[in-house]
Design a protein around this nucleic acid. Structure first.
Length: 325
RNA sequence: GGAUGGGUAUGCCUAGUGGCGAGGGCAGCGGACUGUAAAUCCGUCACAAAGAAACAUCGCAGGUUCGAGUCCUGCCCCAUCCA
């Protein structure tokens, strides 16, 4: 038994440490992350698909520099809202940030709610064999002309597994599967299968902060009311004036697309706020679905701890057990 | 007091004008996700159930009819308008 434990630890020591702190939107990741970073001498990598963008502060509930309390944050405010952002870009930038943090002898803390991004970094998923091509535009045109069913049928021969797994209405994923085959010559289902079997190259701890659903939903709604008070509408208007258009990745963020439709006169402000609250609740729910499916996670239920300090203690103990600190 | 419109499933909105075990939407809940992921998509949503046999429900109570959410009568409630 002793033997086993030693071997196990040796193995872990070879891998570099990585701490993840995530959870549904509005649970309170940001505040906790600062305390955690101070406790373990860490630096932050944001795994957030919207906080990367400059000028998008209110709607993304972005951490402000005075709140950072001296902790270095990577991947916040680094892109122009007109630029694209996707998992692969995230992964590339995040790996770069990791190197910098390791070079300083500090511990990286990945904070943010984008589960897919976290996964891409944690398991070092391979993306580099494909590129966004003109072929995608072709497929989109084909969809517009012949419909979802016809497009889906094309998968049948080239990738029967994806044909079964991807619903024909999920046009984005059908297109991606077709595109992947077109670019690489082998089915995306095979690629996914291979990537799924990967073991993480990091000695990691994956914290998912959670709370009672009702409490969470309440906080979401309150937070949105505050965003509106703080000038969310004005922030979105400025982005439109700056030249952002609804088709851009940045403008598909929660709080942006809804307010854009108000500003374009598609609905009243009240309606857009109602929709924003609803969609944000849906989003939180989807995030939780993602985390439940993720292997090797540690749930941190806020309502199980009397104080935030006790919660932090619990987390530190976990990190010690895994020889991360 | 009078006039008009309306009350549809454990939450909200709505279709239905004689064959309804009542259609749709929202919320809620569950799930998928490997280069748009704060995106995209799916499922579920009274009870029961694959039995020609039985047991719900369309504000409440009666009536007409083989059969009523649907037609008739009375009552209750809501909204608007008139006194």
């Amino acid at each position: 038994m002793t033997n086993k434990t030693v071997q196990h630890s040796d193995n872990l020591i070879q891998k570099k440490p990585l701490v993840i702190l995530t959870g549904p939107t509005a649970v309170g990741k940001t505040a906790l992350s600062i305390k955690l970073a101070k406790a373990i001498n860490g630096e932050m990598i944001s795994a957030d698909s919207m906080q990367v963008y400059k000028y998008m502060d209110i709607g993304t509930a972005k951490i402000m520099s005075n709140e950072m309390d001296g902790i270095k944050h990577y991947l916040i405010d680094v892109l122009d809202p007109k630029e694209d952002f996707n998992v692969f870009t995230f992964q590339t930038m995040a790996k770069q940030a990791l190197e910098e943090i390791y070079a300083k002898g500090k511990i990286p803390i990945v904070v943010g709610g984008t589960g897919f991004y976290i996964q891409s970094l944690l398991y070092d998923i391979a993306f580099e064999n494909t590129e966004v091509s003109a072929y995608r535009a072709e497929l989109t045109a084909e969809y517009e002309q012949y419909g979802a069913h016809a497009l889906h049928e094309r998968l049948k021969d080239i990738d029967p597994i994806s044909y079964e797994e991807i619903h024909e209405n999920n046009v984005k994923r059908v297109i991606r599967a077709l595109e992947f085959y077109h670019d690489t010559g082998y089915p995306i289902s095979q690629h996914n299968q291979e990537q799924r079997e990967k073991e993480s190259p990091y000695n990691f701890e994956y914290f998912v902060l959670n709370d009672d659903r009702a409490v969470l939903y309440n906080r979401i709604e309150q937070r949105i009311d505050i965003m509106v008070e703080q000038g969310l509408v004005n922030e979105v208007q400025k982005l439109l004036d700056y030249g952002c258009t609804p088709d851009m990745v940045s403008m598909q963020g929660l709080g942006y697309k809804e307010i854009v439709s108000y500003l374009q006169g598609d609905c009243s402000l009240e309606e857009s706020i109602y929709i924003l609250k609803r969609d944000t609740r849906h989003f939180a729910k989807r995030q939780l679905t993602w985390f439940r499916r993720e292997k090797a996670i540690t749930w941190v239920d806020k309502n199980l701890f009397e104080t935030e300090d006790k919660m932090l203690t619990f987390m530190l103990e976990n990190l010690q057990e895994k020889c991360i600190i």
